Amino acid sequence: MSRRGLQTAILGGAVVMAALVVAALGQPVPLLSGPAEVQTIPPLPTVTSPQPSATTPLPTATSTATPFDPSPVLIVLVQVILVLAALAVVLALAQLLRSLLRRRPHLELHEEPDFAIPLVPSELLEAARERLQDLESGEPRNAIVAAWLGLETSAAATGLPRLAAETSTDYTERVVGVWPVDSERLGDLAALYREARFSVHELGETHRDRAINDLRVLIADLEQVATRQAAERAPHPVEPAIPRGTRREGA
Score class of each variant (00 low, 15 high):
N142H: 12
R228G: 09
D182E: 11
R185L: 10
Q51V: 03
L192Q: 11
A251R: 00
Q51I: 03
F115K: 13
A211M: 04
S2I: 00
E112R: 15
E152F: 02
Y193I: 03
R104T: 14
A211N: 04
F68E: 00
T8M: 08
L77E: 06
S122F: 02
E152V: 08
T60G: 05
R104C: 01
P235R: 13
T169R: 15
Q224T: 13
A14P: 01
V73W: 06
T66N: 09
A156T: 10
W179D: 00
L44W: 01
Q39Y: 09
G177T: 10
L6T: 08
T8Q: 12
R247P: 05
D209I: 12
R103Y: 08
G250T: 08
R194N: 11
R102T: 08
V76H: 09
A19Y: 03
L151Q: 11
D134K: 06
A54H: 14
L32A: 03
I144A: 10
V120P: 01
A36D: 12
E202L: 13
E112Y: 13
E195P: 02
S168H: 10
A234G: 04
P118G: 13
V181M: 11
P118Q: 06
Q51S: 09
E37G: 02
V90H: 04
T8C: 02
D188G: 03
E130Q: 05
P235W: 14
A190I: 02
P240N: 13
V238L: 15
Q79C: 04
R103H: 09
I242Y: 05
L82C: 07
A156D: 07
P105F: 11
E112K: 15
P45V: 11
A19W: 09
E249D: 00
D188M: 12
P70Y: 02
R197D: 10
R162A: 14
S199H: 14
T246E: 15
G159H: 02
D182V: 06
A156F: 14
L44C: 01
G150Y: 04
A196L: 10
A164E: 10
G34Q: 04
M17S: 04
G187T: 05
M17G: 05
A234C: 06
A86T: 06
I75K: 06
A9L: 12
V29R: 12
A251M: 08
S53A: 07
V175A: 02
L77C: 08
E195D: 15
R185I: 00
V217H: 08
I81W: 00
A92W: 06
S199N: 09
R185V: 00
P59N: 07
N213C: 05
A88T: 13
R244L: 07
V83E: 01
T167P: 05
R228F: 08
A127Q: 13
S199R: 13
Q7C: 04
R194Q: 11
Q95W: 15
L44M: 09
T167K: 00
G138Y: 14
A165Q: 14
D182K: 03
E205A: 14
P237T: 10
A116I: 12
L84W: 13
E239A: 14
L222I: 10
Q224W: 00
G34H: 06
P52N: 07
A65M: 07
T55H: 07
P52D: 12
T64F: 08
Q79N: 10
L77F: 14
F115T: 11
R248C: 01
R102I: 05
A157M: 05
V217P: 04
P43H: 07
A23P: 02
V120A: 02
L84H: 11
L124T: 03
A190M: 09
V176W: 01
P161G: 03
A251T: 00
